[in-house]
Amino acid sequence: MKRPFLEKSTTKYQQSCMYKFVYYKEIKSILLFGLLMFVYSHSFAQTKNESYVLKLTNFINDTTLNYTDRNYYSEQLKYYEFKLYSVESKNNLLNNIKNIQICQNGCILEIGALNIISSKKILQAIIDSNLVEYKDAALIALSRMGEKKAINMFFSKLNKMHPEAAFRQYYKEIEYIKQPECINFFVKLLDSNALNEMPKETMKPTKLAADAVRCLSRVIFNFPVKYFYDNDEDYAIKQAKKWWIKNKNTYKINRNVY
């Protein structure tokens, strides 16, 4: 391979340094992702702090990385506690969604979860645009931020479907939005008798209502049923219904988690 900037006048030491630099550049694209993965898996996961989250948000906007890598990092954002997002990290997220060339759905959703008010106009612009790839994420991010118009749009789509089918398809999004409409949606499913299909024939099908209980337990503060065995799901559903009757006017949604 041609190395045009290596001049004859340079010393052997300088040349070797330059060769190292060139070599580094050549293998950069191959090694960089592996290196970042290594850094991520060996330090980020163990030492979750502000500076690592900042690095992560920097990677997402780093155009020297390819789409695949940036997409991977954007998908990791949800695993970090909100308190680890500094002002700079939040600005990085905003910069990401402002630039459609590097925009990632993971960033849009994290912005919604962090409730960054200044992003509302940008998200609305995405919804109103023809950027099909980002529209759904922008809609549910705005719903998470409590925008009634967005919530109505999302639930009007859901209400056209059979509730059980809607739950199976959109349970993650409903859980993410964390609005009273979501709680009502889950609570209605506590009366469902639908069974989950199990991939293994020897497994007894579990009840869809039990999944609704699990969703409620993740969304509501101090929900009484946390973890239960498959054999105890009827009891868990009963407990959840009982709790709801007593607490339907006083429950609090936990928006401190993604």
Binding site: N196, M198, P199, K200, D211, R214
Partner: peptide, 13 residues
């Protein structure tokens, strides 16, 4: 205990 090769369930569970 059921002699299967592996097991997983759908993401919802």
């Amino acid at each position: 205990n059921d002699g299967s090769n592996g097991m997983s369930v759908f993401p919802i569970i």
